[in-house]
Design a protein around this nucleic acid. Structure first.
Lengths: 211, 211
DNA sequence: GGTATTACGCTACGACTCGTAGCGAAAGCT
DNA sequence: AGCTTTCGCTACGAGTCGTAGCGTAATACC
């Protein structure tokens, strides 16, 4: 957040309640109106603040929505479920549940689209949304290495490459399934996905409802 | 295209040249302005047509951009490169090359974002962009089955599920790599990706520059 | 308690885009 | 020819944008 009050600062501090109200109002407007019809004036009205207050804190619609959507991903966790497959299935289901919410669906893709022409916006997305997710990949990978479920990777550069690859494969597949194919990433899909991710397409598939 | 002249139709026919000019102008505007700053008035001026002509053919910005972007994916092909791995690497590189173009980057994600709240738009995207890509997956899969590279799948329902899964994994990973991570899906990345897709994470990784 | 400094709510503003209506002219079919 | 549809052009009300200006509220420092 850029609204943190600097240490040696005088004058009236910014209202933290207003920040929360604005972000909540933004999410509500995303649900009801979607990205394209969301206006900052409307968000201000919903939040009970003046439009000028909104412009004093965020430079525009893009930055505001990034912050509003980023909060949705704060709940992502990676509890230890005993095996790499179970860990992956658990976090993917969490991720899918977030993407199933309309405020995430309509907001996330839109800001990513805008970020293709705005480096500062892309950095903001990376810092507040992407990097925390990638940390989960690192954590899960380290845990699996401890369990001996993954082969050792000698080259440290290759480790970085692999983590990036896994991240793009996991997040990309869930996002594509949810937003492009518009099908639910339910438990059955997540099981199939995890099996392919761990063992590949060339491995034989188990029965259709094999538990 | 909805502008096809019906069979038994009288009067002045619609200019096919105008269609092409408008779609080309739309892509040019996407490159120079991006999605959010693209206006239909500007596109009309670039194309050398009246703004009203544009509104007579497309109901809005979303539909126009879908058609303009869809043409970019017409060039996708799946030449037989001898093995499933080579086929995948080839088509993924093609896909990545298209996504590297700015008119695809800024346009595609934006219309997908809009489609989360517009069923008709999602159907349009599916028909003109997604389904043709999925056909490539079907083709490559059938080819691999003929070669004996993939295990047989007895349940026909499971086949459909697997094709959908592969499609989401391939397209999702490339899109996420290109647009979210903002890193190039180059030959090295595609090699790593294909290896994981076919053999899974649990398989040992070859050397960093192993051919 | 007084004062400086900043945030806030409110109003108003010019600039821009939207999507549509209406008109006369052009281009094809029978 | 006559009919039908498209095209280019102009104009329009409605809505949003982002900012400026003002008086007031809330905090830090003396």
């Amino acid at each position: 957040m850029q609204s943190r009050t600097p240490a040696g600062r005088t004058g009236r501090p910014r209202s933290a309640a207003a920040d929360a109200a604005i972000l909540a109002a933004t999410r509500q407007a995303l649900v009801e109106l979607g990205w394209s019809k969301l206006t900052l004036g409307d968000v201000a009205t919903r939040a009970g603040v003046a439009k000028t207050t909104l412009y004093r804190r965020w430079s525009g619609k893009n930055e505001l929505v990034v912050d509003a959507v980023a909060e949705l991903f704060d709940e992502l966790e990676l509890p230890d479920r005993g095996s790499l497959a179970a860990d992956i299935e658990g976090v993917v289901l969490q991720f899918a549940a977030i993407l199933a919410r309309p405020e995430a669906r309509s907001g996330l893709m839109a800001v990513v689209a805008e970020a293709t022409r705005d480096d500062a916006l892309r950095d903001r997305i990376r810092a507040s949304i992407v990097d925390p997710q990638k940390d989960l990949v690192l954590e899960g990978r380290a845990r699996a290495r401890t369990r001996g479920e993954l082969p050792p990777e000698p080259d440290p550069l290759a480790v970085s490459r692999t983590v990036d690859l896994i991240f793009d494969m996991v997040a990309g597949a869930v996002v594509h399934r949810t937003l492009v194919s518009a099908e639910p990433a339910d438990e059955e899909w997540v099981r199939d996905f995890t099996r392919v991710l761990l063992h590949g397409l060339t491995a034989a598939a188990p029965g259709p409802s094999g538990g």
